[in-house]
Design a protein around this nucleic acid. Structure first.
Length: 815
RNA sequence: GCGGAUGUGGCGAAACUGGCAGACGCGCCAGCCUUAGGAGCUGGUGGCCGUAAGGCCGUGGAGGUUCAAGUCCUCUCAUCCGCACCA
């Protein structure tokens, strides 16, 4: 029987055609079986689909196939169409209607993607860009509005001039738009819709510590940081002139006797009351501040001529306005304690304000104000602080806070960094916010029966910063649902992160016309067992979706509080040391890859070259190596089919060796995939097996060849769907590989006959010998000491001790 | 500054609870086969010394624990990432 050369083009097209419309990963739900829900956050493919995009897909797919073979019900939809955003961009660029573009895009993209993915394309059932989906966005919005979780207010918001829309805080990266790297975000004051994510911030923070599954520390740290809880004390410093309180927030109230001035943010409301000149100068500070890189900014400020009274000691402190004090954080005012805060120190030294140490190190003396060069910022012992002198910092904080509460001039306070989620966008593409503005009735929610509020299809996209919806009278002009008078429909649309916050719920029940989903169905599939994605979603999507989950729970829709059990962040794919991305212009296109070596080679390389959490430097030569391996495997299996079938005889010795390696490999791959996803070592193990099989090939019996071929195909099934499918058919077997049971191993066959015992002298490898498993310590010791080579090392020395690790090694300690 | 990681051959990386460092692959070298090969096959490949047998060194660095350390402890250096005048 001639061997078959590996023709990836032919094989992959054949199986792609055959499987393209099959719902491969849609489980016929048998609730008695265990379930596995794996999902990837694909970066939305707004351009060329490249190997960087496909990496997380490949990981998830391998896992899904493996779980399936292990007898799980698997839900494994493609996650990529969750965002409407790229559709809008491209529509503007191409002058196409977004809706058409989205459909065209789906067809265009899924050609390659599906050739890689080999799984069910759920984007055919759900596109978040369409009314069937945004109906339920609107429904959620109304529920939140009812509960006060959605509200509208005038606020200073981030504005991306390139997108011509507002952005949420989470979507501003380094002062720039997350989508337009170099475009600086401006601040504008606008009426905006917000979701009250802060209502859940305590829970969002607390639950980080309660996640049962595995989340990367990095992501947890980023979320903690972003939520930014900080415990401290608020205290009022009264203005000497008017008696008006200036409330400050501090985490170090124990240093308050060292306060030597009070500082206001330039935007602080009190600035206006102090005087027009001061207001003018404060404005100057704001402008100087610019919009980027606050950290590198030179500290500037000025004295207002006013004084405020320290409530703890009655001291009269000058009131300053300083550019580094932020209105958005705390109360917008601080007390400056230059001796114990580095920023205050720098500011006060610059302007000649007194530095007064009041905390000394536990085992040291108070610093000298004149000679200190840096603030002493650690906790210590409080000095020169009236009744609190001599206390440790922590204790002083407690007592001083208590005093403020008792005296009515302050309280313990917790400050959060997290702000409410601004969801208004002045884009066309997005879910219309379902409210109506009526002059008489105010803001009136659209009646639930009228959902979905549909986007008009006939629009012109201007990119001018006002929603194009405002120019569509049929959309804008409506009757007020309450009074029937003339009213205007809200023209803002929702942030598309709303879509992505719950799309994975809808995947479980995509056609439900009555509700976002059936809670019973959700109950079976959720939580997501394994979510896979890039680190870039650590604070955006992953906080929003956690928030959404808690809201849905409080609406009685779901019974869990966290959507994702285990989160995995895969490493980026680099090309020449830079993350593969369209903007960097260094992509290895999936099309080109599939053309040249095939999707199987691409998948295998991505899985083999590095463990999934690590970054992966793309190397063409590495892919070639994988291609060679596939070719060798293909030829080996096909050229032995005849001999296997004929049941040819072979050498028992070679058979035994081959079977041992085979069963060891099944064990190793199973362990590697079960406990940790070490795809790379799994694949390496199969390669080792193939090397051994090649070496023994001519001596193997038909039966062993048959068993080996079959198991190799099954072991590789999760990684290289096309070739294994083809070989499975060549072997005369029926049905998709991933519906076969995972191969089993026989521990008896896998066992080595003899143990190789290593002999060390003083911990250094000096020799080795074979011994039966389970040999006694005494026997091993004796044989080691009798070993020729060891004897030469022992000559003239005294054996102090012999350590024996059964079946492993003997270490002889000599002097 | 705060927080999170990561350091092993020429390269990507292995090494499960401390027990043979470098599996597997790439690259490179030699050979075979071929009209030819950017195809296939065989062998070699951490460094230094040695014709060889063999020896010494070797997991960022310095100490320590141990019969035994890439793995545990202490300190330190370097790189990457996230946040950042957050009071």
């Amino acid at each position: 029987m001639p061997e078959k050369t590996y023709d990836h083009q032919q094989i992959e097209m054949k199986w792609y055609e055959r499987w393209r419309d099959a719902a491969l990963y849609r489980a016929e739900v048998d609730r008695t079986r265990p379930k596995f829900y794996v999902l990837e956050m694909l970066p939305y493919p707004s351009g060329t689909l490249h190997m960087g995009h496909l990496r997380n897909y490949t990981i998830g797919d391998a896992l899904a196939r493996y779980k399936w073979m292990r007898g799980f019900n698997v839900l494994h939809p493609m996650g990529w169409d969750a965002f409407g955003l790229p559709a809008e961009n491209a529509a503007i660029a191409r002058g196409l209607h977004p809706r058409d573009w989205t459909r065209a895009n789906i067809e265009e993209m899924t050609g390659t993607l599906r050739r890689y993915a080999f799984s069910y394309d759920w984007s055919r059932e759900i596109s978040t860009c369409e009314p069937e989906y945004y109906h339920w966005n609107q429904w959620f919005f109304l529920k939140m509005l009812e509960r006060g979780l959605a509200y509208r207010k005038k606020a200073l918001v981030n504005w991306c001039p390139e997108c011509a829309t507002v952005l949420a805080n989470e979507q501003v990266v380094d002062g720039c738009c997350w989508r337009h790297g170099l475009v600086a975000v401006e601040q504008r004051e606008l009426e905006q819709w917000f979701l009250r994510i802060t209502a859940y911030m305590e829970e969002l923070l607390a639950d980080i510590n309660r996640l049962e599954g595995v989340w990367p520390d990095r992501v947890l740290a980023m979320q903690r940081n972003w939520i930014g809880r900080s415990e401290g004390t608020e205290a009022d410093f009264r203005l000497e002139s008017t008696g008006q309180p200036v409330r400050v927030f501090t985490t170090r109230v124990d240093t308050i006797f060292g306060a030597t001035c009070v500082m206001l943010a330039p935007e602080h409301p009190l600035v206006g009351e102090i005087g027009p000149r001061e207001q003018e100068r404060a404005k100057g500070l704001i402008d100087l501040r610019g919009r980027k890189d606050l950290a590198g900014l030179e500290k500037e400020g000025f004295f207002t001529g006013r004084y405020a009274i320290n409530p703890y000691n009655g001291e009269r402190l000058p009131v300053w306005i300083a550019n580094f004090v932020l209105m958005e954080y705390g109360t917008g005012a601080i007390m400056a304690v230059p001796a114990h805060d580095q920023r205050d120190f720098e500011f006060c030294r610059k302007y000649g304000i007194e530095v007064r140490p009041v905390i000394r190190p536990v085992d040291g003396a108070l610093a000298d104000a004149d000679t200190m060069t840096d603030a002493f910022v650690d906790d210590g012992v409080v000095e020169n602080s009236g009744e609190f002198s001599g206390l440790a910092s922590a204790e002083a904080r407690r007592r001083m806070t208590a005093k403020a509460e008792a005296g009515g001039f302050g309280k313990a306070a917790i400050t959060w960094r997290l702000k409410d989620w601004g969801i208004s966008r002045q884009r066309y593409w997005g879910t219309p916010i379902p409210v109506i503005h009526c002059e008489r009735c105010g803001i009136v929610p659209a009646p639930e029966s009228e959902l979905p509020v549909r986007l008009p299809l006939d629009i012109r996209i201007t990119g001018r910063g006002r929603s194009p919806l405002e120019n569509v009278p049929e959309f804008i002009n409506v009757a007020c649902p309450a009074c029937r008078g003339q009213a205007r429909r809200e023209s803002d649309t929702m942030d598309t992160f709303i879509d992505s916050s719950w799309y994975f719920y809808r995947y479980c029940d995509p056609r439900n016309p009555r509700a976002p989903f059936d809670p019973d169905v959700i109950d079976y599939w959720f939580q997501i067992d394994q979510y896979i994605g890039g680190i870039e979603h650590a604070i955006l999507h992953l906080i929003y979706s956690r928030f959404f989950c808690k809201v849905m729970r409080d609406l009685g829709l779901v019974r869990h509080s966290e959507p994702v059990k285990n989160l995995f962040t895969q490493g980026m794919v680099l090309k020449d040391g830079v993350a593969m991305s369209k903007s960097a212009g260094n992509v290895v296109g999936a099309d080109a890859m599939a053309e040249k070596y095939g999707a199987d080679t691409g998948r295998l390389f991505v899985l083999f070259a590095a463990p999934p959490e690590k970054e992966l430097e793309w190397q063409e030569t590495g892919a070639e190596g994988m291609y060679r391996f596939l070719g060798r495997t293909c030829r080996f299996v096909t050229r032995n089919i005849e001999r296997a079938r004929a049941g040819a005889a072979g050498s028992p010795d070679a058979d035994r060796k081959a079977l041992r390696k085979l069963h060891q490999t099944v064990r190793k791959v199973t362990q590697d995939l079960e406990t940790r996803w070490h795809f790379n070592t799994s694949i390496a193990a199969v390669m080792e097996l193939m090397n051994e099989l090649h070496a023994l090939e001519s001596e193997l019996s038909g039966a062993v060849l048959a068993e080996a071929s079959e198991k190799v195909v099954l072991l590789l099934g999760p990684f290289i769907p096309y070739l294994t499918e083809e070989l499975w058919e060549e072997l005369g077997r029926q049905g998709p590989v991933f519906r076969q049971p995972w191969p089993t191993y026989n521990p008896e066959l896998a066992r080595e006959e003899e143990a190789e015992i290593v002999i060390q002298v003083n911990g250094k490898l000096r020799g080795r010998f074979l011994a039966p498993f389970g040999a006694s310590r005494e026997e091993l010791e004796q044989r080691a000491l009798a070993h020729d080579k060891i004897r030469s090392f022992l000559a003239g020395k005294q054996v102090v001790k012999v350590i024996v690790v059964p079946d492993k090694l003997v270490n002889v300690v000599v002097r």
